[in-house]
């Protein structure tokens, strides 16, 4: 895979559909993920974005970074807006008002816009079976409003609403397993991805675009600002998230699990936690607790992937 990437990069288009000049922080791997998704989908797409960092950094009127049709309505409804657009296109094509160009419909939101406030709209859209892709850019907190905790914030992380204090060690709940919630809707395609693995990510977006029904991609998107990391460490820490098993990369096609980036031996989670400011306060005990949980979850995933 690694050696393949040397050639693979030459096959990737140089065209950008999410153009440069946006206002994201330096080293923002969420913006990188957005760029990779946009690159993969090309021009024949309609995008509905939730409120959040990616919307704010890319659409300060009268500027836009979007070279494809793009709409933002509100925070919690990207899935509803995207599927409204998809349904409208279906009707317009059927009634002969627009030609069928096989346009892809993409809904996108942050972890807050997806796993908290937008979960209902997303679940409804999955259940209705629209042909659309939903991408969650998971930077593990409400970054746009100043690093508040979400249900996707990992255990132990200090955020502005789950601050590490003398009595509490930051977030005290375990990260909500959003990909599993998507899988429970029995949709044709679910995958996790990370912008530190661009080709894996792009391949998954391609697959999602071909799925005959709803597709969900959950992208771990490193946020140096919110995670307390130097900006040049974003890609590196994303790789560590995968190599430690904290964020395994896999896909679920029609219910079948497949690990797409193998990690035969997991590195200790400490390597992932230590460099990040948001975990600075963690004691050896807490790290041990996290390690246990990561192993447990990883084993569960491996068991699922072993079922053919």
């Amino acid at each position: 895979m690694e050696s393949l990437n040397v050639y693979a990069s030459r096959l990737v288009t140089k065209r950008e559909y999410f153009a440069r000049g946006h206002r994201a922080c330096q080293g923002c791997a969420e913006a990188l993920a957005v760029r990779l998704v946009a690159k993969t989908l090309g021009s024949n797409v309609v995008v509905a974005s939730a409120t959040g960092c990616m919307e704010i950094i890319s659409s300060p009127y009268p500027f836009t970074n979007w070279n494809v049709p793009w709409i933002h309505v509100a925070f919690e409804n990207a899935a509803a807006v995207a599927t409204g657009a998809e349904s409208a296109m279906k009707a317009l094509v059927r009634k002969g008002k627009l030609p069928d160009k096989g346009t892809v419909f993409l809904g996108m939101g942050g972890d807050g816009g997806t796993s908290d406030i937008g979960l209902q709209a997303l679940s409804g859209a999955f259940e209705r079976g629209h042909r659309f892709i939903y991408v969650c850019y998971d930077n593990e907190a409400y970054m746009n409003t100043g690093v508040q905790r979400s249900s996707a914030t990992p255990f132990g992380a200090s955020t502005t609403t789950s601050p590490a204090g003398r009595a509490k060690a930051g977030q005290v709940t375990w990260k909500k397993n959003m990909p599993e919630i998507a899988v429970a809707h029995a949709i044709p395609y679910v995958a996790t991805a990370c912008s530190s693995y661009p080709f894996d990510l792009m391949r998954k977006v391609e697959k999602a675009a071909r799925a005959d029904g709803p597709a969900y991609i959950h992208i771990l998107s490193v946020c140096p600002t919110g995670w307390g990391l130097p900006s040049e460490k974003a890609i590196w820490i994303g790789r560590l998230a995968v190599e430690t098993g904290v964020f395994p990369l896999y896909e679920v096609e029609k219910g079948r699990y497949k690990i797409t980036v193998e990690t035969p031996e997991l590195r200790p989670v400490e390597e992932y936690l230590k460099p990040q400011g948001r975990f600075r306060h963690l004691t050896a005990e807490l790290i041990e607790q996290i390690q246990k949980r990561v192993n447990q979850e990883h084993d569960k995933l491996l068991a699922k992937a072993a079922i053919v």
């Binding site: 509905a48 309505v73 599927t83 409204g84 317009l92 409804g124």
Partner: peptide
Amino acid sequence: VPVESEHSAMSVCCGSSAMGA
């Protein structure tokens, strides 16, 4: 589109109307 809430009803309408339907 049998949505799961009125919030989504108006949101679907926005997506649809923006498509020119």
